[in-house]
């Protein structure tokens, strides 16, 4: 009976953990996607300064998300986003391939969202 209770307890904990982590990941990804869209719009409007600021904010958000995400998401997926996020503020200044990088980041974040 103790084993049964322990098993039910563990299963409930795992269930709660998976639901919470799933919701949390989706929420954080949605927030990042909003920033990506905002940065893309700012670049289209020629407001590079604002785009740079948004990119920096995007990177900050990603850094805080990544610390915890590494506990529940495979590292190879995170590394790809790491690579793109590190380049964004620099690209925002010069506009070189900023738009394509943003859309690539959007696809990766969307993928992350669906896998969670």
């Amino acid at each position: 009976m103790t084993r049964l209770k322990m098993s039910i307890g563990i299963l409930l904990i795992l269930l709660c953990l998976s639901l919470t982590s799933g919701k949390w990941t989706q929420r954080r990804c949605t927030e990042m996607q909003q920033l990506i869209i905002q940065a893309a719009e700012e670049t289209e409007n020629g407001d590079n300064k604002a785009a740079e600021k948004t990119s920096a904010e995007l990177c900050r958000q990603w850094e805080s998300f990544r610390t915890w995400a590494s506990l529940i998401i495979k590292n190879d997926m995170l590394r790809e986003i790491d690579r793109l996020c590190a380049r964004l503020p620099e690209l925002a200044e010069h506009e070189d391939s900023f738009g394509s990088d943003l859309s690539e980041l959007n696809v990766l974040v969307e993928d992350l969202k669906h896998r969670s």
């Binding site: 049964l4 322990m6 998976s18 495979k74 590292n75």
Partner: peptide
Amino acid sequence: TNIPLLVGVTPILSLVCFEVILSS
């Protein structure tokens, strides 16, 4: 090491708990 430990632990614990519940 690419797989987080929590991701590796979850299926093991889930399967074992299912087995205990099923045998009960």
